Simulated scan of single mutants.
Amino acid sequence: MDTENIAKHLRLLWRTDRVIADIRLRHLLVGLGLRAFAALIAVFGLLMLELAAYLALVQITSAVVAAASLGACNFVIAAILLAVAARAPSGRELELASEIHSSSMDALQLEARSLQSQISSVINHPLNRLIPLLIVPFMTFIIKTLRSHGPTEGDTASSSTSDARAT
């Protein structure tokens, strides 16, 4: 586990999320702008068309039939405009950003699993990491102490001669 890799993946994840959000926001703004413009055109255009159509239909049929047919045409036009505005965003930018986002998430999950395994090994066996740190210096100290205080070959011979003189 490397904190540098985690930070790099988090930065990459943040940037791709920003790119994805920016693409979606631009798409929503364009859709909203199209809807507003379509509504404006629809209001003025339909008022004029309806007035002309109503005046023409009133001469041919009754006023009720003329108003009903114009209302049905208005619903059809509104449905077509809403269908155009509601289409899904398509583009390579969004696909690329989504791929980078998913690969960054996979890398972060891998780093998290590595961190989890390291933490669980320390939690399950907390002395495993301390034993080499404690035993190696302790054993070195014991070996040095035994070497410095232990009898040498010359010490053994002189002690045996002094024991022989005393008897």
Rank of each mutant, 00 (worst) to 15 (best):
L57S: 07
L25P: 00
D22P: 02
I119E: 10
L51H: 07
Q116H: 12
T140A: 10
F138Q: 01
A68P: 01
K144E: 08
R129W: 08
A88N: 12
L46E: 04
R87F: 02
P132V: 04
V65D: 02
L25D: 06
R11V: 13
R11W: 03
A67N: 05
L12D: 13
I77C: 07
L70M: 12
V19I: 14
Q118P: 00
V64F: 11
L70F: 07
L28Y: 05
M48G: 15
E99D: 13
S121L: 08
G45H: 05
K144C: 13
K8A: 15
W14I: 08
I20E: 05
P89S: 06
C73H: 05
I119K: 07
R129P: 00
A157R: 08
V65E: 05
M48P: 00
L146M: 10
V65L: 13
L12S: 13
D17P: 00
I20S: 03
I41V: 15
Q59N: 10
I142M: 09
T145M: 10
V19M: 05
M1G: 12
M48A: 13
L13V: 01
E153T: 08
L55Q: 09
G31N: 10
V43N: 06
L55G: 11
A85K: 04
L51T: 14
A66K: 03
L146K: 00
A36N: 03
F44C: 08
D2M: 07
S98I: 00
I80K: 07
V30Y: 09
I143S: 03
K8Q: 10
V43G: 11
A79H: 05
E93D: 15
E50Y: 15
S114N: 10
N124I: 04
L13R: 14
A7G: 02
L108C: 04
A72R: 06
Q59M: 02
I131G: 01
A86D: 12
D17S: 15
A52P: 00
T161P: 01
I23V: 15
M105G: 04
I142H: 02
D106M: 14
R113W: 02
I142T: 04
F138I: 05
G154T: 14
T145K: 09
V136L: 12
L110N: 08
A39H: 07
R35E: 08
V84D: 11
V43C: 11
L130Y: 06
S117T: 12
A97P: 00
R11Y: 08
A68F: 11
S159V: 06
L34A: 14
L81T: 09
A72G: 03
R92L: 11
V84W: 11
L82F: 12
V122W: 12
E93I: 03
E4C: 07
Q59P: 03
V30T: 10
N74D: 08
